[in-house]
Nucleic acid binder design. Sequence first.
DNA 1: ACTTAAACCGACCCTCTGGTCGGTTTCTTT
DNA 2: AAAGAAACCGACCAGAGGGTCGGTTTAAGT
Lengths: 205, 205
Amino acid sequence: MQKNLKSRVTINRLCYKGLDVFTKKGYHNTSLDDILKELELSKGAFYHHFKSKEDYFIYIIQNLVVRKIFSLLIEPLDTHDNPIPVIVETIENALEPDKNNELAYGFLLSDFLAEFNNRNEEINKYLQDILSLWEVNLVSLLKKGKYDGHIARHVDCEGAAAYIIASYLGMRTLLKGSDSKQFVYRYIQQLKSYFNSLKPIAIYA
Amino acid sequence: MQKNLKSRVTINRLCYKGLDVFTKKGYHNTSLDDILKELELSKGAFYHHFKSKEDYFIYIIQNLVVRKIFSLLIEPLDTHDNPIPVIVETIENALEPDKNNELAYGFLLSDFLAEFNNRNEEINKYLQDILSLWEVNLVSLLKKGKYDGHIARHVDCEGAAAYIIASYLGMRTLLKGSDSKQFVYRYIQQLKSYFNSLKPIAIYA
DNA sequence: ACTTAAACCGACCCTCTGGTCGGTTTCTTT
DNA sequence: AAAGAAACCGACCAGAGGGTCGGTTTAAGT
C-alpha cells in the first residue's frame, strides 16, 4: 500500500475506534491501551500520528463529531419551508438509531459537554463551537419562520432555540438509561406540543 | 471531642468537600489526594471511614445529592394546587443560584448521569433512582392536574414529565457554558410556553 | 491509672497510563 | 541498488493514584 494512504487508513481506524470507546467509557476513563489493544497497534504507531491523547481527542471531535452533527442536525435546517416540521423531522431523524447514524453520535455531545464543561478549556471550546453553530442556525431558521408567519411574533427565537437544544441534550441523557423506542416517540410528541405553543394563535386554534 | 461525634464531623467534611471537587472536576478526573490535601487529612483517615473511592462517592450521592434534589425539586411538588405554576416555580427556585442552593446541586445530576451512564452500573443505579423518583412525582402531579381540569385530557403525562426533566437536565448542561442570568430567564419563559400547550384549550385561548 | 478501641497518620506498594526512544520494517526516490 | 524517510514496534520510564498497613494519638470504659 502507498505510504500516505496507509497513514490515512491508520489514522481513520484510530479515530473511529477512539470515538467508539470514548463514547462508551468516557475520555478520562479510557486509556490509550484500551484503544490500541483492540486495533492491534502499538504506542509507537499512535504517537507517530498524534502528539498527545488530548490532541487525538480534539482531532476526533473536529473530524467526526463536528461533521456528523453538522450533517445530521444543522444542514437539514437549510430550508425555506415552515421551520416547525423541519426541525421536528430533523431531530426525529437524528434519533433514528443506526440509520443515517451508525454510531449514537448524539450522545457524544451531551456526554462530552458534561465531562469537559469548565474543566478543560481547550476541548470545551470545540464542543461549544458545535453548540453555537447549531444554535445560530436554529435561531435564523426560527426568525425566518416568524417573518413568514409560521411562528408567532411574540416568540423569543434565541430562547426557543436554546430550549430545543436543551431538551434534545437532556433527552439524550435520559435515553441511555431507559427503553428507547417508546421514549423517543414520546419525546417527539412533546416537542411537537411545545412547537404548538410557538405557532400564531390563528393557526394553533 | 466525643469519638462518634468526631467521626461524624470528619465524614461530613469529606462528603461536602468531595461533592464540591467531584462536581468541579468530575469523578474520574478527581483523585483522593486532591480532596485530602484540601482537608489536611490522611489516606489512613479516609480509608478508616470508607472502603473505597466508589463507596465514598455512592455515600455522597445518597446522603447529599438525593436529599438535596428531593427537597429542592420533588418535595415542593406535593401540593393540591394547579400543577403548572407549581412546577415552574419549583424549577425556577432550584435554579436560583446560592439561595436555597449553596452548591450548584442541579449540575450534579446531569453531569454524573453523563459520566456514569452505561459505564458503572452500581453508581448509575443510584442516579437513576433519583430521576425515577422525580419522574414519578411529576407524573402523579400532572395526572392530578388533569383530573382537576388544569391540564388537557389529551396530554401524555409520562411523556410530559420526561420532557420537563430532559429540558431541565439539558439546560443545566448549556448553562455552565454561557451567561447564566439571561439564560435562566429565557429558559423559564420557554418552559411556560411549553406548559401553555398542555393547558385545556378553553384556558389557553 | 490502665486497658481498649476508635480515629488518624504517612510511608509504602502496585498497577495503570501517558509518553519516549532506539530500532526495524516497508515504501519511495533517485 | 542504495539511500532516505515514513510507518510502526515494543521495551521502558516516570508519575499518578487507589489502596494497605504498622504504628501513634486520643477518647471511652472500668
